[in-house]
Nucleic acid binder design. Structure first.
Lengths: 248, 248
DNA sequence: ACCTGAACACCGTTCAAGT
DNA sequence: ACCTGAACACCGTTCAAGT
């Protein structure tokens, strides 16, 4: 308890060194929250710890950012804003989507704890509306219209952001001790009769594919598969476009 | 407080009517947890509420299922187990994947609150290993081998499960009152210069596409787009297979 | 084996009061 | 406008003790 007070005092001193002489800004709160999330994970984020790290009482956080849900939404926003889009018209639609995909994954990969729940947290904002509009422009440019445009748009965003959140998700059960050992054991017990394909490809897939890995994308990225997925989706869309060209 | 005791008493009475005379089984705990999640949402799940709903003290839950993370993992497992796979070899690989996709979405759609965080929670189990193995068999049968097999496998699972969790995710900010109004306002303020594509397609996309909807997949499903996404992925994989057939 | 009863440390949120 | 200090209701988890 005095320990907490000491930490608070130190943080307060740091804060006093700021240009404006110690008054907290909303941006500082968001930065501190993101730092805390990156350092200790999403589950460890609490309003009280965050307040402590800023040398301030919990209620102060509420004054700046509203409640915890809003705090998280704003942090996600901040990260989301740094996704870089190509100018519409500068590149072919396929290249534009590739750029969106790789930038989104790079940005979210810097904050894996956030990425896991990211899809739940997308909030309306200038930059999310901008992304939506640009993507729609690009897809219109490619020739998609009406109901088809809706489906293609959803396909692009759903696969890209859905994948990213799946890749960086942590396994809950991981919090337990010998989870890894248990997993490896289960995999090795895979018999030729029951799990022949896993057995055949064990070295190839162990800890490298969904449902057969015991570390998340944080420690074992799946960049190759992600890129392949994006290429597959684009190839699929091209084929859809060809089919669409024919008279129905 | 007496209110809680009353509820506990009633639940205990219900429990006493069970075949074995009132002793709690692990399965009963999981069923009650899933019911609570479906009824009040993931955030409302607490060990104490769950205990109350079973007419039991919190510590009893710990005896049956370990801690909260393990509880959630087991509940996910239970839902996951009801995904139905086609027999390998009974249908072409494309149909097999289609079946996996629609069954997975149907099953998860029955428990949207769970679906949102589902990717974080997949645990090793008999049925998840089985799914992994069958999918690998199917993809081998289609002609994918080695590193290519890894990427295709990840593409299939990453897009299907990633999408589903994105579709059924709730918007956090939704907990606030006039979120919808705010959103609609932001969309209507979309000017022709800043957001031309959204403006052009407003009626088409409003509340129907990712990042431009204010209700989640629970109330506004995106089945059409999901099916299209699956077809796109399959078409893309077919093209990848053709490319692969040519000498590199 | 299964459950009680109570405790511990922690949490989100609110609110009057200070400056 | 910005922050303190304290309070309220709730939470996950543990543990000795009961049967």
């Amino acid at each position: 308890m005095t320990e907490v007070n000491e930490r608070r005092e130190r943080a307060r001193a740091d804060r006093a060194a700021f240009p404006d002489g110690g008054s907290l800004s909303g941006a500082q709160v968001l930065d501190a929250a993101l730092a805390l999330i990156d350092r200790e994970g999403m589950d460890a984020l609490s309003m009280r710890k965050l307040a402590d790290s800023l040398g301030v009482y919990p209620a102060t956080i509420y004054w700046h950012v509203g409640n915890k849900n809003q705090l998280i939404a704003k942090v996600c926003q901040r990260v989301f804003d740094s996704i870089e889009l190509a100018e519409v018209g500068d590149v072919p639609w396929t290249a534009w989507i590739r750029q969106l995909a790789t930038s989104a994954r790079t940005v979210m990969g810097r904050h894996p704890s956030l990425a896991a729940g990211f899809t739940s947290t997308i909030q309306v904002s200038a930059s999310s509306l901008t992304l939506a509009d640009r993507l729609m422009q690009v897809l219109e440019g490619a020739g998609f219209r009406g109901e088809r445009l809706v489906m293609v748009y959803n396909t692009v965003l759903g696969t890209i952001f859905g994948w990213i959140s799946a890749e960086f998700a942590t396994e809950l059960a991981n919090s337990d001790s010998d989870w890894t050992a248990e997993y490896a054991a289960a995999l090795n017990e895979a018999s030729d009769e029951e799990l022949p394909a896993i057995r055949r490809n064990l070295l190839l897939v162990a800890n490298r594919v969904f449902m057969l890995r015991w570390t998340s994308g944080r420690t074992t990225p799946m960049e190759g598969s992600f890129d392949f997925m994006v290429e597959t989706m684009i190839a699929g869309l091209e084929r859809m476009l060809e089919r669409d060209d024919r008279p129905l």
